[in-house]
Computed example of a mutant assay.
Amino acid sequence: MQDLLKEQFSGFLNTPRLPLENFNFSYDFFRLTKNPELDSADIPSPPTMVLGKRMETFFQYYVQNFTNEMVIAHNEQIIDDKLTVGEIDFLLKNESSSLVSHVELVYKFYLYDPSLGSREEDRWIGPNRRDSLVKKLTRLKTRQFPLLFHPATRPLLDSLGITAEEISQKICFKASLFLPFLERNNIPSGISEDAVKGFYLGLNDFTEKMFPGADFFSPRKPDWPVSPEKNNTWYSFEEIKMQVEKMHKKQQSPLLWMKTPENEHFRFFVVWW
């Protein structure tokens, strides 16, 4: 179990930040600057299989063990007149400067659909088309960051002896990006090459002829950040296609890992839409 947690944690650390400055998003970025040695690390087991919550556990572990920041609040629900109005991801206090920061953590997988919108940021969507970069950025700007200044947040800040005005706000936005199969070498403007982790295609284009002799595996969502080179279990094309078809009936787009006869490894989504 600890080995798998280390691979998930390493995958989290190695996921690049999304360059939000190219999408008119002005909040400062909280940078994870160290690449820690994990041989002796004791990674905590996240309490849930939900991918975003697991990444919060890893972020908290990183902050507490590899930075000068202290976590003084985490996942604090803000309640106004018995109604939950939002949640503060992290409040951090620098041990040297005593400066406090409010950090929102985002960990996403986005696919590029060139047919959407007129702006580059309009074209990044979730694998099942229920999520998008624009929706997330809008929510951050209009709800998550303004929550710090909501009157219902004041009791939390009072208990910590701080005011909203003295807190800096930062974003830690990590994302793995996937391009259409036929355009996988055309990186959209504003995106770094290392952020592109693979491609996507539809079921009709996912054929054995397209990937002759390859083996496949469909990881659980908590393992999506893991490098496919670490995998030891592989399935034939016929076996994996049956798994994909079952997921498509639920309108779910699975992430696949692929190992070629030349021992090259790739990641890609087979989308249901």
Results as ranks from 00 to 15, higher is better:
I79F: 08
N186K: 13
E76H: 15
Q243E: 10
S45Q: 14
T153G: 02
I171W: 03
L105R: 05
N263R: 04
T138V: 12
A164K: 05
I167D: 14
N22C: 07
K170C: 09
T138I: 12
N65P: 01
Q251P: 00
T48G: 10
Y61A: 09
E104W: 07
K246V: 03
Q2K: 02
R139T: 05
W273N: 15
P225W: 00
D223V: 00
Q64A: 09
V271T: 15
L83T: 13
F217C: 10
D89L: 02
M258E: 05
I191Y: 01
V271S: 10
E21R: 14
L203W: 01
R17M: 06
L157R: 03
P114F: 06
G126W: 00
D81C: 10
D42Y: 11
S218T: 10
S176R: 10
F109K: 04
V134C: 09
F12G: 01
N231T: 11
F181Q: 11
K108L: 07
G198C: 06
Y62I: 10
M258T: 04
W257Y: 15
R139A: 07
G190F: 04
N128D: 14
P151T: 03
F30N: 01
P222W: 03
S118L: 13
A164G: 09
I162K: 08
K34L: 11
K108P: 12
P180G: 11
F29P: 01
A152S: 15
G52V: 14
N231L: 11
F237I: 08
A195K: 06
K197P: 00
I167N: 13
T84I: 09
P16A: 12
V71C: 06
K136T: 09
N231Y: 10
V134T: 14
K53F: 11
Y27L: 15
P114V: 08
V100P: 00
R184W: 05
I187G: 02
K250R: 13
L83S: 14
E239K: 10
I125S: 02
Y235A: 08
R54P: 13
P180F: 07
F58H: 11
T57S: 15
P46C: 10
D28F: 11
P36I: 09
M258Y: 02
N185R: 14
I78R: 07
L256K: 02
E95D: 05
F149W: 07
S118V: 13
G126M: 03
L140G: 09
E165Q: 12
S96H: 12
E238S: 12
T142R: 12
N263P: 00
D39L: 13
Q64M: 07
H150E: 05
R267A: 03
L99D: 15
L133Q: 01
A164D: 08
I79W: 05
L5N: 06
T233Y: 08
S189T: 10
I88N: 10
W224E: 06
F90P: 08
N14Q: 09
T33P: 00
Y107T: 06
N22Y: 03
R54T: 12
N263I: 04
T163L: 10
R154S: 13
W234E: 03
K141C: 04
P146N: 01
V100M: 02
H102E: 07
R54W: 04
G190L: 07
R129Y: 05
L201N: 08
I79M: 06
N232I: 14
W273R: 15
S227G: 00
N185Q: 14
R31H: 12
L4N: 09
W273F: 07
K82V: 09
L137V: 11
D194P: 00
N128P: 04
Q144I: 02
W273V: 01
K135Y: 06
